[in-house]
Design a binder for these strands. Structure first.
Lengths: 346, 346
DNA sequence: GTTAGCACTCAATTGGGGCGAGTGCTAACA
DNA sequence: TGTTAGCACTCGCCCCAATTGAGTGCTAAC
């Protein structure tokens, strides 16, 4: 009754998981004995498998069927068994070119990143734009549109550009607005979202003298844009790939997936707070969305000098190709981090 | 052998289509006789149905099944039979509020419009942002970011705001850039995409004197932003609704739908050129995407003073509730057109 | 500790029979 | 001449029983 994961058990477990990842079919003792010749009989494998089931690594979907991995099984696989795969030359070059071709516009870069990952991994991919919340203000400028409206343009040190229309209830002279713009710009340089308190806004607005009201409206807009998490852009790609996995031919499951992936709030929750910049593998119920309990999520944040800016998530079935996904994610992160570092100068 | 659509045939056809829209099941002569009492026997209905089949309005999916409408049947239904439905008070008020709550930002308005339509019709909905291509320039301003980069901010008369990063290969003084910005702004006011030819750009850039190169780069960027159709934002919503329709429980069909709806190019093709501002109903193969031949598309453009700016499309199964979709689309169009007219002042 | 052998389980497949919704045709009727 | 009742026929669908086959657990022997 050796309830320890000895070498042989591990080999068998690995065979089961690898096979299941490939075929999506439960696998039995005889099949293992034939396919992976380990010099032991199916009966012996049966005994070992029984132990593995007792230990919670595998489970029978029904009697008289083979075994499939449990979440715990996948967890062990990912933590201890999986060989870290290197990217192939083509894959690496493809990712490289995607980033290189889109350096000038951060938003395109993120969209194309999502597309590229989805194409390589055949999984659904979501990418969040660098959060302005975490960034510092590089430039603020007000662009007059008509008498009572102007666009507040904000550029962060991560070169994310945000704009928002501001309406005021009296006519504002363009020249006065330009002066105000310069004033606010210099006052806001280098500030991050938490710096812009109500008090700070009020005291800054007072500098504007008779244009106090306009300044306050503008600052409120700046603060809102910097603080909201809702306004964050999230790019998705390859959601339809989900339908190609046999585990989602059950329409109810597929619907759950699509519901989660079509709602921004959900996606924001999903990407959530990745504490550090390691690549996280969340298997089954480990992720934060009940709708995605049948999936695995591989996610990571991109960052510059320890500060997280945004996140990337790859969503697939639990039997997804973890090693590839991790490799791809790692590869693209390296590039994005480099770009961000260069841009923000942090 | 009366091959004319007499009154009775029409009544039967209408019954078939209405029933099929509700139940998604083929419908037979006996059912019609019982459900809609028209004072004739099932045998007579059978004869009429046989004629209707010969005329191409209905078809049997297989022998010993009832009939379902063909594309031609739907076409006749939409053109001649369908009662134009009015929006219910709640529906009307809901649409009204969606627009009213999002007047200040055109992009939110479009996104929320898509959401609202999808919610009401239970169909997939796509909405394209007002095309800058069709708009006139209201304001152009360059916002310096660092020595060699600035953001070109462009506001159209439809209050769509676009921004694009411009990199130049030498340092540009912020003051000089501001002057340049003012110069370009005044020169570009009221211009539309076709006005900005290469010649025009060159002659305008010459006004910048020693900053000719910077001006040219900026103008090129303006021209690109104004001209590209790719950069158009397209908002989608309710794509997952598709999975709730029984006709798409065939995974292959569902996949086709998702493929079409996930690719921007496809969506642009689909919305295509709606020549006038009427609401178009495209049944089955009438639309321009082969992937959507199993669907119907209801689309229309929103416009101000005869100029189309963008489009809205509702995509559902061929047996969708056409009258509701048309009513909803008509309702929202009225509001959007009013907003656009007010904003652009055209 | 390993293995062969055997009894057992159970999902999936197969095939036949009946059901029912549907049609087309024909003959009779108004 | 149009309408209807009646009937034979078709065929998808459902249910059921039998069969198959992949898989297990247990036991006894090596």
């Amino acid at each position: 009754m050796s309830m320890l994961l000895n070498d042989r058990k591990i080999k068998i477990l690995e065979a089961i998981i690898n096979d299941y990842i490939q075929t999506a079919e439960p696998i039995g003792s005889r099949t293992i004995a034939k396919k992976y010749d380990m010099g032991i009989s199916s009966a012996t494998i049966r005994n070992e498998m029984s132990d593995l089931e007792d230990m919670g690594f595998i489970v029978q979907p029904h009697a008289s069927a083979g075994r499939i991995p449990t979440d715990k099984g996948y967890r062990f696989f990912v933590d201890s068994l999986m060989r870290r795969r290197e990217l192939s030359d083509e894959e690496a070059q493809f990712l490289q070119s995607v980033i290189a071709n889109n350096i000038s516009q951060i938003d395109y870069m993120m969209q194309e990143t999502a597309k590229a990952i989805a194409a390589l991994t055949k999984c659904a991919t979501i990418v969040s734009e660098p959060q302005v919340k975490k960034a510092r203000i590089k430039k603020v400028q007000f662009v007059p549109v008509d008498e009572r409206a102007f666009v507040m343009v904000l550029v962060t040190d991560t070169k994310v550009v945000k704009n928002h229309m501001v309406y005021v209830d009296r006519a504002v002279d363009p020249l006065a607005l330009a002066g105000l713009s310069a004033l606010m710009d210099s006052g806001l340089l280098g500030k991050s979202s938490e710096d812009i308190t109500n008090d700070f806004a009020a005291s800054m607005a007072r500098l504007a003298g008779s244009d106090y009201d306009v300044a306050l409206a503008a600052l409120r807009c700046v603060s809102e844009v910097m603080k909201t998490e809702d306004d964050i852009q999230i790019y998705t790609s390859g959601i339809r790939n989900i339908l190609s996995f046999p585990e989602f031919s059950d329409l109810e499951k597929a619907k759950a997936m699509f519901q989660a992936l079509e709602e921004k709030d959900m996606l924001i929750t999903l990407l959530g707070k990745s504490s550090n910049d390691k690549i996280q593998v969340l298997i089954g119920q480990e992720n934060s969305l009940e709708l995605l309990y049948d999936c695995s999520v591989i996610k990571a944040s991109y960052s510059a000098s320890g500060q997280n800016f945004g996140s990337i998530g790859i969503i697939g079935p639990k039997r997804m190709d973890y090693s590839q996904a991790v490799a791809v994610l790692g590869g693209i992160l390296k590039h994005i981090n480099a770009v961000l570092k260069a841009i923000s100068g942090r």
